[in-house]
Design a protein around this nucleic acid. Structure first.
Lengths: 166, 166
DNA sequence: GCTGAAATCGCCTAACG
DNA sequence: CGTTAGGCGATTTCAGC
């Protein structure tokens, strides 16, 4: 899988589609400096090789009635692989949990949760999360405001580290 | 701004575009059960009213050479509004920091960072983040693996709480 | 192999009912 | 909101580098 490499045009395509995932192919081809057919072929190849995972609209959570975002730091009693996986399986079934990252250190998982209001989050917290098997402790922090939210990766950092292409 | 309301078709549109932001308008119109022109008008309206913020391709960070993701918990010495804003301004200029959330409690900010490797993150950590004005302490946690990563909000939670439409 | 040009097909997007 | 219709983008085909 790491045998596939990208040239500067591929990286430009990825950067452009990360910034605007609904851009038309002709506009994209214009921006990366090639004609439309090869541009479309490259996009399809990037999708099939997994460099592009998916496309999503970013919606305004608060306007839609999701007024609270909470980070939950979870520690488990057992860190055996089967128990870690079991917890992750459980997390995937909870719609309020949007992200789950396994961490090093004392905290085993950090969960990013979104809920309509505090009371619905708290009923999830006490009724589901802390009540789940193997959960030792949960520390929650309410998000007061969002200072930055950029999707994906910083391609400019990549460009200044790359010697050459494919 | 809260005067604008959404009917079930609008919510379906948002859910579909959150799940697949590159869907064609005719496919979208088919899924929500109306014809293409009014569907497009609704999408444009949702974009202009800010319910749809933007569209993004989700890329494979690891394949692209961003091997490490780190959560940084930052505490500041002063929590005066001017100092909080000054820190947020600084964060926006750091490409490695993809998200910055202000929290309640002892930790003032949680930062989600992405870097090509540990050494480049650590040079950012010591050279930029902990060296920034007003930063009292920074605790970092390396992401071992990702158990879940869903975009945006859980529309199914919304549906089971909504009495009626516009 | 790759790209680019031409042609076809389908979608987008006005205008109107 | 639906239908019609014209213009544009998407996608295949084919020729050239």
């Amino acid at each position: 899988m790491p045998g596939i490499k990208l040239d500067p045009i591929d990286r430009k395509i990825l950067a452009e589609l990360q910034a605007d995932g609904r851009m038309t192919n002709v506009e994209l081809s214009r921006r990366v400096g090639i004609s439309a057919p090869p541009c479309l072929r490259r996009v399809r190849a990037l999708e099939e090789t997994g460099f592009i995972h998916s496309y999503h609209a970013r919606v305004n959570a608060r306007e839609l009635g999701f007024e609270v975002t909470v980070f939950a730091m979870v520690s488990l009693r057992s860190q055996a692989e089967a128990d870690l996986s079991a917890f992750e399986d459980r997390v995937r079934a909870w719609p309020l949990v949007r992200e789950c990252h396994m961490l090093n250190g004392e905290i085993d998982f950090i969960l990013k949760c979104v809920a309509p209001d505090l009371s619905s989050f708290q009923s999830f917290l006490t009724g589901e999360l802390t009540a789940a098997p193997n959960v030792a402790s949960v520390k929650t922090s309410l998000v007061i405001r969002n200072g930055k939210e950029e999707p994906g990766v910083p391609f400019d950092v990549l460009e200044s580290r790359i010697s050459d292409d494919d």
